[in-house]
Each structure stands twice: as C-alpha cells, then as structure tokens.
C-alpha cells in the first residue's frame, strides 16, 4: 500500500521534476507567473517536443533569457509571441494559432468524431432494417425448419 502511494506521489510530482528552469526570475509574482506560462507555450527548436521551460539546451536558455527581457521591457504576451514567430515561425508555438490555414487542423478532432458517429448511425440503421426484415420473414413462414 505504501509502495503504491509512493509511486502515485512520484507520478503526481513528475511534471515538476521535468522543469529545468525553476529559479525565481521576477520579484513580482504576476510577472513570474506570466514568465512561467510563456516559456511553457514556446517550443525548444532543438529538442522539438519539449517546451523551452523543460529543455536545458543552450538555445532554450537563450530564449528564456529573451522572454525575461521582453517581460521586463513591458511587452504584452501577444508581442512576445509575435517576436518569436517573426524569427522562428509558427512552429515555435506549442499551441498552433487559429487561422484559415489551421482551421482543418483544429476542426480535425470534431470531424473525425462526426465521421465516427455517421458510421455508427449507418450501421445501426442497417442492422435494424435487417432485423425487421428477418422478423417479418419469420412471421410469414413460422413453420419452416
């Protein structure tokens, strides 16, 4: 029981253990929170599937320093995201922007779900029809072996 509890505790804490950048950068807790949120939303382009908060690559450290400098310079979140995409493209955003060229991407889960429902509906209707037809057939010829 204790072992299971320990394992669960480890699992619960593991996201915290991944973060490389744990130091306090700002006196102001609001700014610190903004900083932490921004670095989680930016991709480390060297390691690809990690955010710059999780990566200890040199580039990630440089980009964290840049985010810090931009926050200190009083830039808004939008301006900081724009700063990054002007240089590295949309790929740096871990959350792709909603734009005409990404509508399909964002709509894909809903489209797949709708497609699945459509298939299920067709199958149920068809089964129902076959069931009715069989029942009717049975009623017509009840004594047939």
């Amino acid at each position: 029981m204790i072992r299971i509890a320990a394992l669960l505790a480890c699992l619960a804490l593991s996201p915290l253990a991944v973060a490389v950048d744990t130091g306090q950068r700002f006196e102001d807790p609001g700014m610190q929170a903004r900083y932490e949120r921004l670095i989680r939303d930016l991709r480390c382009l060297v390691c690809r599937s990690e955010s710059i908060a999780d990566s200890n690559a040199t580039l990630a450290a440089d980009l964290r320093r840049e985010v810090e400098a931009l926050i200190r310079a009083g830039r808004s979140d939008e301006e900081i995201y724009a700063f990054m995409t002007e240089r590295y493209g949309d790929f740096i955003l871990l959350r792709p922007p909603v734009a005409p060229r990404t509508w399909l991407l964002w709509a894909a889960p809903a489209l797949f779900l709708a497609g699945g429902f459509a298939v299920v509906l067709v199958v149920i209707r068809r089964r129902a029809r076959i069931g009715l037809a069989n029942a009717a057939a049975l009623e017509e010829e009840p004594d047939r072996p």
Partner: peptide, 13 residues
C-alpha cells in the same frame, strides 16, 4: 557569444 543576434536570425542549430 551570447547568441542574441542569432535569435534575431531565427538560428536554432
């Protein structure tokens, strides 16, 4: 040495 200009050029490797 600090990689500031490299960021402006979108250098990642």
């Amino acid at each position: 040495p600090e990689g500031r200009v490299a960021i402006d050029w979108g250098v990642y490797g």
